[in-house]
């Protein structure tokens, strides 16, 4: 959220700018870090599908910014292989939908090498991938993070603001495990796309170096009546609902960004649930088998007796993402659907 004054030693950055800084800092710090992907370093090109790498070839050149053919299996496979040999690749998928092209490299190779080698090898790679519906239809609008949150050996990160995007990407690069790093298409820019509610998407980012740990959730807004857990655009919708319900109904929502889905920071989550007694989970991934189901199951297991109402999940409807804006908006979790769920558990 915009604040009138930016504290000294910080600037406001977009997520794209923050990610670019994280990449540049890690590449400067560690010679073993390199980038690999499609359309990332071509002169006069795009700097990646969403411009995150723009300008980086000036400093790092084409040897460490590896432009590939349209070959996702080769991108992921090369990242796995180089990681096994001690490099720390940051691989790029233009859209997370294309991760299905390289499921084998990620799920059968990256995730399993550690165990298969009896702990003698590790695969320190990062795979960045944009998720989310943005009127591009069924094959460019999925939020597939739950597929990966199911795989032992992978870590899964979802970032929603510039501060955590930067701190977490730096941690992901330094992590010795394969990290799937999911960003939302509607959250990269400055102006805040209309579909994202016209938000100011810049955040304060310190000038000096910092890391933010994988596996730690953050409380974005404190409240005593109900716990809302959400990522990406859904997080901002939850914050809007929280403001609305505070003013209109005196309901105080505690809104939590889990940031890492695997491993999940249940300590932060359950502390909140024990305080509020109510839990609503919101994500743009589809409902059935989505990561919200895992959070709900674990909440039932680990803090059922703290609950005063059924756990609710608000998720994308169980259909592929349709193109027409009216349909797309009906599929993804809306402010209205979130508000209804919160009112229900608080009734």
């Amino acid at each position: 959220m915009p604040t009138p004054e930016t504290p000294r030693g910080t600037r406001r950055l977009t997520i794209a700018e923050a990610l670019r800084e994280a990449v540049a800092e890690e590449m400067r710090r560690d010679e073993s870090v390199f980038l690999i992907g499609e359309d990332i370093g071509i002169e006069g090109g795009f700097g990646g599908a969403f411009g995150v790498y723009l300008g980086l070839t000036d400093e790092f050149g084409h040897e460490r910014i590896v432009d590939t053919p349209i070959s996702e299996k080769a991108i992921a496979g090369a990242a796995v292989g180089a990681a096994l040999m001690g490099f720390r690749p940051i691989a790029d998928m233009q859209y997370s939908d294309f991760l299905f092209e390289c499921m084998d490299e990620l799920v059968n190779q990256a995730a399993k090498m550690r165990l298969m080698s009896g702990g003698r090898l590790s695969v320190p790679l990062v795979m960045r991938a944009p998720v989310g519906a943005s009127v591009r239809g069924a094959q460019h609008g999925q939020s597939p993070e739950s597929y990966f949150a199911h795989v032992p050996g992978l870590k899964v990160v979802c970032v929603s603001d510039a501060y955590h995007a930067k701190g977490l990407l730096k941690s992901a690069v330094r992590d010795d495990n394969p990290v799937l790093f999911f960003e939302h298409k509607l959250l990269y820019g400055t102006k805040g796309r209309e579909q994202a509610g016209g938000l100011d998407l810049t955040a304060e980012v310190p000038e000096e170096e910092y890391l933010f740990p994988i596996g730690q959730a953050v409380v974005k807004r404190a409240g005593g009546d109900v716990t809302l857990v959400a990522t990406h655009v859904s997080l901002y919708r939850c914050l809007a609902v929280a403001d609305e319900l505070s003013a209109a109904a005196g309901i105080e929502c505690e809104v939590i960004d889990p940031l890492t889905l695997l491993p999940l920071d249940t300590e932060t989550l359950w502390a909140s649930v024990r305080k509020t007694g109510r839990l609503v989970i919101v994500h743009e991934d589809t409902l059935t088998g989505g990561w919200g189901a895992e959070v709900a199951a674990r909440a039932a297991d680990e803090c059922l007796y703290a609950l005063e109402a059924p756990i609710k999940r608000v998720a994308a409807l169980d259909v592929p993402i349709p193109y027409a804006p009216v349909l797309e908006q009906a599929v993804v979790p809306s402010v209205e659907r979130i508000e209804t769920a919160v009112r229900e558990v608080c009734a």
Partner: peptide
């Protein structure tokens, strides 16, 4: 279909890329 209308060849579900 490009307009995302019910009368489109994919009933507005597909869009430009489909």
């Amino acid at each position: 279909e490009l307009y995302g209308k019910e009368t489109g060849c994919c009933r507005g579900r597909g869009g430009s890329m489909h």
